[in-house]
Amino acid sequence: MLSSVNSLSNASILIVDTGRKGEMRQCEALANACGLPWRFTKNDQIPPDEPTLILSFGRALRQAWRLKAAFGGRPLIIQLGRPRLKAPSELDLILLMPQDDYPEGPQTLHLNMPLNGADLSRPAIPADTTQGPVSVLLGGPTRHFSFSDNDAQVLLSRAERLAAATGTALRVVPGPRTPDHVMQIVEERYRQTPDRIDRRPLSTVLAESGRLVVTADSASLIADAWRTGKPTWLYPLPVRLPPVQRLKIMADRITPELRHTLIRRGWLAGGTDFSRWHRALVQQGLVRPLTEQGLKKPDWHMPFPIPDEELRACRDRVIALIADRKPASSRAER
């Protein structure tokens, strides 16, 4: 017991900075939940003090592995998102994102929602009011989704209908990934009502909105919107299938266990399946699709209360790993 207490009191966290705000907010949420001192590192910088554990997200695992080696292999590695070409048995814990298509195992914890906006002090999603405007949180095209001019027009038309049906105002909130061609459509459409374009910080928009519309490309924004407790509507963008995803689908038609075996050996990186996750969210009643069918119930809202315990579960797994870690003196004796 005493060694466990000492291991926690002397523990620290190093976060590999990916430069992606949504990813880093999840790492920060987990580090803060653990109640341990933490810091960022980037550009292959090696800090002077050895961390107890390293948090890496996505492709940052490569840098995390180099840092682990620089400290004699001692720090634990907690990976958020599927690890690329690294056997899960080589990692201490893998926190899989909800869209990750990756086999379950003793080192994995598959999240139902990203950790954006998660708060230990709030174990359930609050029942919020629907007072305030309908705010459209615009994303943009990614490797997995396209975002055409027609998508922008259909999205705005449906959002306008939702606002009209609920007797509320409409606000359109551009994001850092929103392409110029979509912004041109937005600015032209609201040339006579420019106040509909809301460029305030996301936190302000979330607090003052009554309903939220999120484009399907951003898992982080879906989590941020859902955790407000406000009705969250999901606009389904056309899905792109990268070559790796096409190969995955072909392999699964033959023998899905073969692909999982290759992943467990670190020979294959795994894949993503956003559509499966989005369908699950709709089936669970956590979000509403902004489709013709979905608009038939404009006053839809989530059932309450809804538990939100995933950050606590992640924290507990990390703390247990640190507590079970052998003291430095014991490792030296071995």
Rank of each mutant, 00 (worst) to 15 (best):
A320H: 13
A216L: 04
N150D: 14
P305F: 09
V154G: 02
A165T: 07
V205G: 10
L93M: 14
N10K: 12
N43E: 10
N112A: 13
V172H: 15
D128F: 06
L247R: 05
H144Y: 11
I263E: 01
D180E: 15
L206D: 08
M1Y: 06
D101M: 01
G72D: 11
C314S: 10
F40S: 07
A87H: 04
I185Y: 10
W267F: 01
T255V: 11
A223Q: 01
T215Y: 05
L67F: 03
V244Q: 15
T228S: 12
L80F: 14
D17N: 14
T129N: 04
A29S: 12
Q63L: 01
E50C: 07
L93D: 02
I78R: 02
I249N: 01
W38L: 09
R276I: 01
G210V: 08
V136N: 09
T108V: 13
S275V: 06
S7E: 10
W300D: 05
L295A: 09
T228F: 04
K68R: 15
R288E: 08
P141I: 13
L120P: 02
T178R: 14
R265M: 02
R82K: 15
S146Y: 09
P126E: 13
V16M: 09
A164P: 13
H181W: 15
N112I: 07
E257G: 00
T129M: 05
P231F: 07
E104I: 01
G266V: 00
K21C: 04
L202Y: 08
R315T: 10
L96Y: 01
G167S: 14
G81S: 06
S330K: 12
E208G: 10
A163P: 13
L212W: 05
D324M: 10
L234P: 03
I306D: 03
R171K: 14
Q245N: 13
I306H: 10
S4G: 11
A269W: 00
M183L: 15
F304Q: 08
T204A: 09
V282I: 14
Q153L: 11
R161H: 14
F274R: 00
L206M: 10
E257S: 14
T232H: 11
V205M: 04
Q245M: 10
R191G: 02
R227S: 02
L212E: 08
I249D: 02
A169I: 12
G270Y: 01
R288P: 03
D324W: 04
H144L: 03
M24D: 12
A70N: 09
D149A: 13
L234C: 08
L156P: 04
L30S: 09
S209Y: 05
H278V: 03
R199G: 02
V16R: 06
L155H: 07
K21S: 10
G167F: 06
S209E: 07
R143K: 13
V205H: 07
L237K: 12
Q45E: 13
P106A: 03
I185D: 13
R276M: 01
A313D: 07
V213I: 05
L111W: 03
R199T: 11
Q184M: 15
T166F: 14
V134M: 02
G229T: 04
A11L: 03
L262D: 00
T130D: 10
R199K: 13
Q284T: 06
E208W: 02
